[in-house]
Nucleic acid binder design. Structure first.
Length: 225
DNA sequence: AACTTATCCAACCGCCGCTAC
DNA sequence: AGTAGCGGCGGTTGGATAAGT
């Protein structure tokens, strides 16, 4: 592996620790669990492997379809993409993309390069609303993303003074417009959408967090319309 | 059967934004 | 205002395994 593989004993200790003390406070987990691992390793092991309801095995056709569309829309924001795929982790999605999809799509890219260039990668952010706002990272800085990120923060500034709802609506409109542009809205099967919705309602929504922040929620509301 | 190459995926690393002090 | 520490993210690495020769 990329590092030292986790043993069953370590897994057991970590599980027990999380069950006892809950998620979060990762800096304390190695000590509390008695593990000779850093906080990041513990967190990653839990999120990608030990968490309940993690789906293993091949990606379904609809999941692949979803990944492709969301990647078009969001770029390499694996955690957000994984958040729309119940039971899948950001690492899974990223690995699947790198192994299967990036090559396949690169081959096709030549055909519709013109189209993809017109699609803006959007970054749903609603930092000034909701109890968990402000915990999201600025995200990757691929050349294509940078401009949009700047635009996004500009719009935040613009609408800050007007109040939350105004900004909320504007972002929602943007997100919805982009989803619509991608043909995501209303295209996925009802079963798949419901599965995601139920997972969300059960608090299983995001692979990276047990909570949905408002930016995520907006995107979900649009996706599950 | 033995060796090489390709693929998969768990784990690590470095960076970022936020919060508390 | 500056900064240390944290959680979280995406990119990368490298060992295991499958496929090919």
């Amino acid at each position: 592996m990329g590092g030292v593989a986790w043993t069953e004993e370590e897994d057991h200790l970590l599980k027990k620790c999380i069950q006892q003390y809950g998620e979060g406070k990762w800096h304390r987990v190695p000590l509390l669990a008695g593990l000779n691992r850093c906080r990041k390793s513990c967190r990653l092991r839990w999120l990608n492997y030990l968490r309940p309801n993690i789906k293993r095995g091949n990606f379904a056709e609809e999941e692949v379809e979803m990944i492709i569309k969301l990647h078009k829309l969001l770029g390499n924001r694996w955690s957000l993409i994984a958040g729309r795929l119940p039971g899948r982790t950001a690492n899974d999605v990223k690995n699947y993309w790198n192994c299967h999809l990036s090559k396949k799509l690169n081959a096709l890219e030549g055909e519709d390069r013109q189209v993809s260039r017109e699609v803006q990668v959007i970054r749903p952010q609603a930092r000034n609303i909701g109890p968990s706002s402000g915990k999201r990272r600025g995200q990757s800085e691929s050349p294509t993303d940078k401009g949009v990120q700047q635009e996004s923060s500009m719009s935040s500034l613009t609408f800050d003074a007007d109040g939350q709802n105004h900004m909320l609506e504007t972002q929602q409109d943007n997100i919805y417009a982009c989803l619509d542009q991608q043909g995501i809205v209303g295209e996925l099967s009802m079963d798949f959408q419901l599965e995601g919705f139920e997972a969300m309602m059960n608090g299983e929504g995001s692979s990276s967090s047990s909570q949905w922040d408002w930016g995520d929620l907006l995107l979900d509301m649009d996706l599950y319309k």
